[in-house]
Amino acid sequence: MAASPPQKINVSLDVNGETRNVAIRPADTLLFILREYLGLTGAKPGCLNGDCGACSVMVDHTVYKSCIMLAVEAVGSKVTTIEGLKDSPIQHAFIENFAFQCGYCTPGFIMNCHALLKNHPQPTYEVIKEWLSSNICRCTCYEEIQEAVMSVIEKRE
């Protein structure tokens, strides 16, 4: 017997300020929908297990790992991916501080740092450390990433 076709539902997602209508399976993660249906490949699949942070995006004012969030959970919220950031201070700081090598983890790190700086304009070292521990960089650019965050804070002072 042939398998029945996947049951899809039509939803509207607000992604980077645009309304995107898309038919999704309720089982689809936000990461999958962003990359495969909406053409936004900035959020990266890494561990797919909520560990590495390469898929981090913002939903409203909170940063989430989009591999452990269903797309249907984002309905009614504002999703911001790396493609939605334009000339943000942390993007410039990553370049100025050489805060990446291969770049695979970079979108996730930038989204997490961006959320950190939005939610904590003057974070303590402990807060920075706690937030940055959510992402993994196998090229080990941790020092440079921390310096990038610090440089944004210093420019604000």
């Binding site: 909520g50 560990d51 942070g53 981090s56 909170t62 940063v63 989430y64 790992k65 452990i68 969030m69 997490n112 706690e130 937030w131 521990s133 959510s134 992402n135």
Partner: peptide, 12 residues
């Protein structure tokens, strides 16, 4: 709670 997983994961 702060010892569980990591900060971003704990948002979820």
């Amino acid at each position: 709670s702060m010892g569980i997983a990591d900060h971003t994961a704990r948002n979820k």
